[in-house]
Simulated assay, not measured.
Amino acid sequence: MPPDPAHWPRHGWVRLGKGWASRLCSPMAPAERAEAEDWCRAGRPLVIARGRPGDGMGELRLGLATPDKRRIGLHVAADAVVERLDPLPLTEAVESAPEAWRPMLADLARRAQELGAAASVYGSLAWQHRTGLRYVRPESDVDLLFAPHGRRQLDRLLELLVAVGDRTPRLDGEILLPDGAAVAWRELAGRPARLLVKGPAEVGLRDLPSVLALFDREEAA
């Protein structure tokens, strides 16, 4: 297992090995630590979260979301990880969605794949699929993650998402930028002058032309 998680993607997943609590980089409240220990003992995974400025090399921020919508954060050394999983493909997660949602999500997965921008999923549907516990409610959104390559692919993907995004289930989520940051697809589709961009360890505003230029340069490369 590589010691430095700098290139491990946010919304990816890990499982921690025995004794992980001895590798904590920040203290946890006793009750939350006990719950996290029970969670890991059951073999359930944790999601990779955004780092924080000042985190050291080889340190990892993780999240545990419970079915009752509580959030527990963990800050551990990466060598506590015994298994790492990429963000969950939507094609895999469809089987864990409510039956009424499955045709729409399967069609979206197929159409995104045809564009060359395969969809991943995070949030409640991903937690439900990864754990077998019940997270999805009738009012839940589906959080999607896309990594389009080039401006034309981005534009076609946004057209697709705008066309289907307000059906049932409602679609939310992010577009990964070529530099590894991410922006909400709904915000990018609205073409505002400035966008809220989430980097590996920071959140900030960027102007729209600079974000689109990343895709233009990627297409030209």
Rank of each mutant, 00 (worst) to 15 (best):
P2C: 02
D4T: 11
A6G: 01
W8F: 08
R10V: 08
R10C: 08
G12P: 01
G12F: 02
G12Q: 03
W13I: 05
V14P: 01
L16F: 12
L16M: 06
L16R: 01
K18Q: 07
K18A: 14
W20P: 04
A21R: 13
S22Q: 15
L24P: 02
C25E: 04
C25G: 09
S26Y: 02
P30A: 15
A31H: 12
E35Q: 11
A36I: 05
D38K: 09
R41Q: 07
A42Y: 09
R44L: 15
P45A: 13
V47I: 05
V47Q: 08
I48K: 03
A49W: 11
R50V: 08
G51Y: 04
P53H: 07
G54N: 01
G54P: 02
E59P: 02
L62R: 05
L62V: 06
T66A: 01
P67I: 02
P67S: 03
R70V: 02
R71C: 06
R71N: 06
I72T: 06
G73S: 15
H75M: 00
V76Y: 03
D79E: 15
R84G: 03
L85N: 01
T91H: 07
V94P: 01
V94A: 03
E95T: 06
A97H: 02
E99G: 13
E99C: 10
A100R: 15
W101P: 11
P103R: 04
M104Q: 15
M104F: 13
M104D: 11
L105F: 14
A106F: 10
D107M: 11
A109Q: 00
A109G: 15
A112T: 12
G116K: 03
A117W: 01
A118S: 14
S120A: 13
G123Q: 07
A126E: 08
H129Y: 06
R130H: 13
R130S: 02
L133A: 04
V136W: 10
R137E: 15
P138W: 04
S140H: 09
V142L: 08
D143F: 00
F146T: 10
A147N: 00
A147C: 03
H149C: 10
G150R: 05
Q153I: 10
Q153F: 06
L154E: 04
L154R: 09
D155G: 14
L158E: 07
E159M: 11
E159V: 14
E159C: 05
L160P: 00
L161Q: 08
A163C: 05
G165W: 03
D166A: 10
T168K: 04
P169R: 11
R170W: 12
D172F: 05
D172Q: 09
I175V: 13
L176W: 01
L177Y: 08
L177A: 13
G180R: 06
G180I: 07
G180T: 09
G180F: 11
A181M: 06
A182G: 12
V183A: 08
A184S: 13
A184H: 05
R186A: 12
R186N: 10
E187W: 03
L188I: 09
R191D: 05
P192L: 01
V197H: 05
V197Q: 04
R206Y: 01
S210Q: 10
A213L: 14
F215K: 01
R217I: 07
A221W: 14
